[in-house]
Every structure is written in C-alpha cells, then in structure tokens.
Design a protein around this nucleic acid. Structure first.
Lengths: 216, 216
DNA sequence: GTCAATGATCGTGTATACAAGAAGTGCTAT
DNA sequence: ATAGCACTTCTTGTATACACGATCATTGAC
C-alpha cells in the first residue's frame, strides 16, 4: 500500500481495468469504489482524475466516470504507434548494447523459448513482456522506455488475446530470434524493421484482433 | 472556464508551467494556488494529481508538488521520440492524403513561408505548430495525433528557444518544403526520413539546446 | 396510448474541517 | 560555540458536509 491511498487506488483501479474486471463502457461509481476499498470518496476521486489524465477512463462533468472503450480501430492505431516506438527502442539497443543489457535480453529470450516449447501461452505472455522490456531498457532512453512500458501496459489485454491464436507462439518466438540476432549484430535498421513487423498488426492479425474483441 | 473548475485549473497550471511562469524545480503550494485562483484546495489538488499523472510535475508524499526539471538529456530523448512519431505521421499522411488535408498542409505551409520571409520568429513559431498539426491530422490516426499533440505541447518551450538560433528559420522552412514535396508525392519513406531529421536534434543543434537551457 | 413536463432522488463538484507528518526554529547541554 | 533534541508551525492527506445538476419515474394532458 504505496504510502498514500490515492496512488494505491490508482494502481488498483488501473489493474482492475486492464485485467478486464471493469469492462469498457462500465460506469465507475465513486461511492461504490470508496466503500469497496474502505476509504472515503476523496482519494477515489483523485485516483479517477489521474486515470482520466492518462486516458484510461473518461470523466464527463456531473455524469461520472466510464471506462473508455477504444474499439478495434483505435486499438489498431495504438499498436501502430507501439510498433514505431519499439522499432526505435530496438535500433537504439543495437547501437548502444552493453554487457548487462545483452545478458538481460539473452536471459528473457531463452525463457520465452522454454515457454513457447511448452506451449504455455500464459507463461509466454509473461516472459514475452519481460523480453520486450529488456529491449526497451537496452535502448538507454529513459523517456522512450517509460512511453513503451506505459503503452505496453495499456495494450496488455489485447496482446493476451492475440497469443491465443493458433501458432502465434512459435511464430512470435521465431520473430524474437531474428530480432535478437539483429540487435546483437549491431544492425539498428534491421532491428527496427523486424520489431515494427513483430509488434504491428497487419493483415490477418488485425482481423484476429477484431474477432477476439467481438466475443468479449 | 471549462464547465468544471478542476479541469480548468489543470489547463491553467499546465500553461503556466509550459510558458515557464512556474520554473522547473519550483514548489507548487496548494494553498497559494487556491487563493490565487479564488477556489478551495480541492480542485487545485485534483489538477495537480492530473499533472502528476501526465508527468509535468511530481508529487512527493507529504512534501508537496514540484515542477519537473527534465534536464537537457531527457529533453533530447523526448525530441528523439517526437521525431519518430512525426516520422510515422508523415508516412501515413503520404499514404492517406486527401483533398482537405492537402489544402490544410498547403495553407499552413505558405503561412510559414511568409513569417519566415519576414524573419518573425514568434509568428513562425505559431505557424510552424499549425503546419505540424496539419501533418498529424493528415495521418488519420487519432491516437497518433493525440500523442503527437501532447508531446508537441510539452516540448514547446524548448522548440521556441531553438527558433532563436541564427538561420534556423530559413533552414526550418526549406526542410518543410522537402517534407511537403515528399508527402504530396506519396513517398511515405522519404517523408518519414525527412521529418525524423527535421524534428530530431542531432549534432550542433543539441549543443544549441543545452546552451539555451543553461541561460534560463 | 403516447409524449411531455415536473418533481424526487441519486451522484458528482466544491468547500471545509480535522488529523498526521515534515521542516524549521529555538533552547539546552556539552 | 556548536550540535542535538524537542516543540511549534505549516502543509499535506483524508473525511465529511453541503449544493447543484442530471437522470429517472410518475402524472397529467392531448
């Protein structure tokens, strides 16, 4: 419980949204949240204002807060931006790679290999996250890293859905291999290109996304 | 006065920070702000929480809010990300250009030409902003546009400083010309490359930035 | 029977009160 | 004279109270 209640609540509610416990479009009643977490309305309001500022919810004046529903098209746009930022991170990583980052990438990469081989999509989902974070960190740009982590968080639910698609695990892992090769070879342009392809959702992957979002 | 006081205050304080009325490192006293704007502490706190979530200020538990001082290196990183996003916007604009967007770009571009010819750096500063916004809009990606506008806002003070550098006006405008040509020619890759160069601050432009930040 | 208007109820927006912690100041002791 | 400790004061964090606006339901009229 992070020192101050407002911030703790923000993380708590944010997680609830990102794990789909509060679904898009759902109304967030201040009083309900307050009693649920055993605090007064004040810190709840502060948490909601922050989530509004981040763009996770929308507070309509005098009409309460609702969880934002991005819709397939907007989610596509978010992946598009994510792809671009990851591409940049990859190209920076290739240029600036040092021993520690190299080891971090290798470690997370091999963990991905294991969970992919085991066909464990939940484990892969987690290891994949760590792998990408290792690349952000290797880019040595704090601001870029923050932006990547933030967007990555917001796209988490959709990424999870995507991993359920048949063969996506092994495809994803082989893409990882090529990315690691490019970064370790110091080939920034290639790393950028591969990451853009890996993260972006072109063609059939977009229709997979739409389909998985529809069943929700 | 945007319907609700908290949101109005957020914009107000945000502008004050971005126009350097509150300088980096400065402590923002809730009570002082409250009396200054003639409201109670509650909406002030809500505004501050939002600015904290956006990353403009930092609220340290029980020790108040201070304006974040990015420092030259971090500002450089922000420009680096901005360059990447603008590059994406440019490449999308080249692909998706329609009549309305084309006219918007042409209009803002020629306004830049006039203020550049007049050597009016303040006017150019404004027209330049509109020109870039026209490109974001032409990309037809709402999310990307929002991200660009937000980052653009945060980098405003530094961009303004940059325009004061000798010859920057005419250099900037000739870069604009090439960018417009690439977009109108439908050459997405070239538009991306040119915008990355235009927005990023490599080499001597970085030292110019550091120098201009030091005198503050 | 349907639509509109008015009133009741519920929930948000702002203010204020109270509690707890941090920083600064003054006093005392070495 | 200086360092350390305690006390005071100031500011933030949380709760609560009150007011205003929105929504919904009920009633009346066409």
């Amino acid at each position: 419980m992070s020192e101050n209640v407002g911030r703790w609540l923000r993380d708590e509610i944010e997680n609830s949204i990102l794990s789909n416990e509060f679904s898009p479009g759902e109304r967030l009643d201040e009083m309900v949240l307050a009693t649920r977490f055993g605090v007064s309305r004040t810190p709840v309001r502060e948490a909601l204002m922050q989530l509004d500022a981040i763009g996770l919810i929308e507070i309509r004046p005098r009409r309460g807060a609702i969880v934002i529903d991005p819709g397939p098209h907007r989610v596509y746009e978010m992946f598009e931006v994510m792809a671009e930022l990851e591409g940049l991170a990859g190209s920076l990583a290739a240029r600036r790679l040092d021993k520690a980052s190299r080891e971090a990438i290798t470690a997370t990469h091999s963990r991905c290999e294991q969970s992919a081989a085991a066909g464990d999509s939940d484990a892969y989902y987690y290891d994949n996250e760590e792998f990408h974070k290792a690349i952000y960190a290797a880019g040595r740009s704090e601001f870029l890293e923050e932006q990547c982590v933030q967007l990555h968080r917001r796209l988490r639910p959709y990424r999870r859905l995507q991993l359920r698609v048949r063969n996506r695990l092994s495809t994803s892992f082989s893409e990882h291999c090529a990315i690691v090769d490019a970064i370790f070879a110091g080939d920034g342009d290639e790393a950028r290109r591969l990451l853009r392809m890996h993260v972006g959702i072109q063609g059939e992957r977009f229709s997979d996304l739409v389909a998985s979002m529809a069943v929700r």
